[in-house]
């Protein structure tokens, strides 16, 4: 199908949805990173023909002056960079370096540096894991909108259950295989499976699954506000 990337090799077949946010979730050591490294190594062209693939891990790093130079010199992306930096309270691109005193802010710089290359498939493997949650969610919200507008495919790996709320498709990994895949709504129904795999659900979904036993909610909602309205109609 043209709206999918079907990746197969000497491992399980994995299908990504094009132009969507594909989230990977699984216990530590279940093979998510190994799989992604395998498909994004020198052979990535075979797996993603005619696509510009960028893989970003949590350890990615480049010389800061080189990254800053691109941020300052690439005039085509100035508006985008300013928009993202404003989420972090940075007014001028030139002053961004003064804010980089931690690995979290360095991850933001690396994110921008690579995203400016306009990837059509952007893979973030715990790439924002050190960014504080307050700013990480602002950045993910921005990425979700931008990727949708520019028709980019996002493959996102994170162990933070709240990050799942940005996903269109969720893939649950276990022992080097995709155990379950489907829309976010479908996968988040499987509370028992999450528990058995040692994974957490986003807060509002965990609340829903616990409350449904008391028969006080009958359908899942995706925000705290909607849950409150649902409970006290």
């Amino acid at each position: 199908m043209k709206d999918e990337f079907v990746i197969s090799g000497n491992f399980d077949t994995v299908t990504f949805s094009k132009f969507k946010w594909n989230a990977f979730l699984g216990p530590i050591g279940c093979g998510k990173t190994t799989f992604l490294k395998k498909i994004t190594s020198s052979m990535s062209f075979d797996f993603f023909p005619q696509e510009k693939v960028i893989y970003l891990s949590d350890k990615e790093s480049y010389p800061q002056d080189k990254m800053m130079e691109r941020l300052l010199m690439d005039l085509d992306h100035q508006d985008m960079v300013k928009e993202v930096l404003s989420l972090f309270g940075v007014k001028e691109i030139s002053s961004f370096l003064d804010h980089i005193h931690s690995r979290g802010m360095e991850q933001v710089l690396v994110f921008l540096y690579r995203y400016m290359e306009d990837p059509t498939v952007f893979i973030l493997d715990e790439a924002l894991s050190m960014v504080d949650h307050f700013h990480k969610h602002a950045l993910l919200e921005w990425l979700k909108k931008d990727a949708k507008k520019k028709k980019r495919t996002i493959i996102y790996v994170s162990l933070d259950p709240e990050d799942l709320m940005y996903a269109d498709i969720v893939m649950l990994w276990y022992q080097n295989k995709v155990f379950l895949t489907g829309t976010r709504k479908k996968v988040l129904k499987e509370d028992e499976l999450f528990r058995r795999l040692g994974l957490e659900m986003p807060f509002v979904m965990e609340l829903y699954h616990k409350l449904k036993y008391y028969e006080v909610v009958d359908h899942p909602v995706d925000t705290i506000e909607k849950m409150v309205d649902e409970l006290w109609k």
Partner: peptide, 11 residues
């Protein structure tokens, strides 16, 4: 320092 980063819920 950041002991939770990279760990799943069980851990």
């Amino acid at each position: 320092l950041y002991p939770d980063v990279g760990l799943d819920a069980k851990s």
